[in-house]
């Protein structure tokens, strides 16, 4: 943890501020919901590292999607992701968002979450232990430091592709495209 190194604060204050105030939207789709309370409460105390749960996506900059993503949930996941202010970081939690996991052949879940929204990091496991969240957060710090947590930039760049993928699963979307010009281009 380089939070106390003053030189780093002078060099890249924005990055440091983003690193140490990760306010998270925990999108608990089904499983994974039980790993969150011990993480944020007295057992593991995520607030030590500036990670606290946010009430709405508007306040957050970290998006944690835990467990399988059904088609119905995907709609909400996309809405929530789009409502978060940039810069924003996403972490898929558990094997289901990565490749479908045990639901890989289900008619009602999607297999690869990063076809629909950009993901900056994954936590594998079914389920991962709460400590894994801390591992993910430290990795995310490194990625932010190296400018590699750029999911939101990718989303903007390849929005047409993402939108097409979303429409393929969900059909006609009821909200207008987030980035108008990129889609036409």
């Amino acid at each position: 943890m380089d939070r106390n190194q003053l030189t780093k604060w002078f060099k890249a204050p924005t990055k440091m501020a983003h690193k140490y105030s990760l306010h998270a939207v925990y999108f608990c789709t089904g499983c994974g919901v039980i790993e969150i309370p011990p993480t944020i409460t007295a057992r593991w105390d995520a607030e030590r590292f500036g990670v606290i749960p946010a009430a709405t996506p508007r306040h957050a900059n970290l998006f944690l999607i835990t467990g399988y993503v059904s088609v119905k949930t995907l709609r909400a996941v996309i809405r929530t992701y789009e409502q978060m202010p940039e810069p924003k970081f996403t972490v898929g939690f558990g094997s289901c968002p990565i490749n479908g996991g045990m639901y890989w052949d289900s008619y009602n879940t999607i297999n690869q979450l990063d076809k629909y929204i950009p993901i900056d990091g994954w936590i594998a496991g079914c389920m991962p232990r709460p400590e894994a969240i801390f591992v993910a957060v430290t990795h995310l710090w490194t990625l932010i430091d190296k400018d590699m947590a750029d999911g939101y930039k990718r989303y903007r760049k390849h929005y047409a592709q993402y939108r097409a993928n979303q429409e393929q699963v969900l059909g006609e979307l009821e909200w207008p495209p987030l980035f108008q010009s990129e889609r036409e281009g």
Partner: peptide, 28 residues
């Protein structure tokens, strides 16, 4: 509050970090 909860809690300057982060984010 963290100490009452038996936790460590964030550093004292955590609100400053957060305000700085808010101001560098895109607002709607």
């Amino acid at each position: 509050m963290a100490r009452i909860h038996w936790r460590y809690g964030p550093p004292l300057y955590q609100p400053l970090i957060e305000i700085f982060r808010y101001f560098t984010q895109k607002g709607s």
